[in-house]
Amino acid sequence: MAYILHLESSTSVCSVALALNGELVDLMESNEGQNHAKLLSVFAADLLSRNNLRPEQLEAVAVSEGPGSYTGLRIGVSLAKGLCYANQIPLIAVSPLQSMCEQVISQHKQLGVDELTDCLLVPMIDARRMEVYTATYALPNHLIKAVSSEIINEQSFLDELSSKKILFFGNGAEKCKTHLTHPNATIIPGIETSAQFMCQLAWNAFQNKQFADLAYFEPFYLKDFIAGTPKKNILTGQ
């Protein structure tokens, strides 16, 4: 039996899942905003405790690799690395974009999509203004267009939409719906990042021994972190 702990902190959703052999056992998450520093380690400890597990009984820790929130990713990867170092277990990196695809694939009928055959899947994570982090996937959840940062307008994805139906989802797609109006474009509302949809992807990686280098792994930020300019001079108060 292989227990894997999954940490998702790439967006405003703070989510931790426990899985056994790729099947979800337990889940704790909050979508109340950027509370990762306060909640992520607490969720991890509580999940293990209420399932009568100790950290050393884990076979691996899976973490959302990004792209997404700079601070959230740092917190998730720091916790994952700490657990892996302390317990001498491997680290598994999972794309939050691909895990959102996993949700759509597994729940498409409940989401109002009768058929996925020949559809492309385009998850989107909100960046800023009309910019999103995105990638393109095809069944059965294979990456066919690399992760990128895109500014969405009326011309976006027109080449692909001319010949394929495309499902757009994620918090980035919600803000782009006024621009993605082609008849072949469908926006699926309500899809958020969640650790529960990392489970099967992490299990596949575990079985294939696709582990991240614990010493050198860093989150996939996609863009450099840009610090905001303080409104007040902290030395003068002006």
Rank of each mutant, 00 (worst) to 15 (best):
L5H: 04
E8W: 07
E8G: 08
C14Q: 12
A17V: 03
A19P: 06
S30L: 12
G33C: 09
G33D: 11
H36E: 03
L39S: 13
L40S: 10
S41Q: 10
A44D: 11
L47D: 02
S49L: 14
P55F: 14
E56F: 13
Q57V: 14
S69I: 12
G72T: 01
L73G: 02
K81L: 07
K81W: 05
A86M: 08
N87Y: 05
P90D: 08
L91G: 06
P96G: 08
M100I: 03
L111W: 04
E115H: 15
I125S: 13
M130V: 05
E131F: 12
Y137S: 05
S148I: 10
I151C: 03
E154M: 01
S156L: 04
F157L: 12
L161S: 08
S162K: 10
S163C: 12
F169S: 01
G170L: 00
N171E: 00
A185V: 11
T186H: 07
Q200G: 07
Q200A: 13
N204P: 05
F206R: 05
F206V: 03
Q207W: 09
Q207V: 08
N208V: 10
F211I: 02
L214W: 06
F220K: 15
F220A: 10
A227S: 11
G228M: 10
P230L: 07
L235T: 05
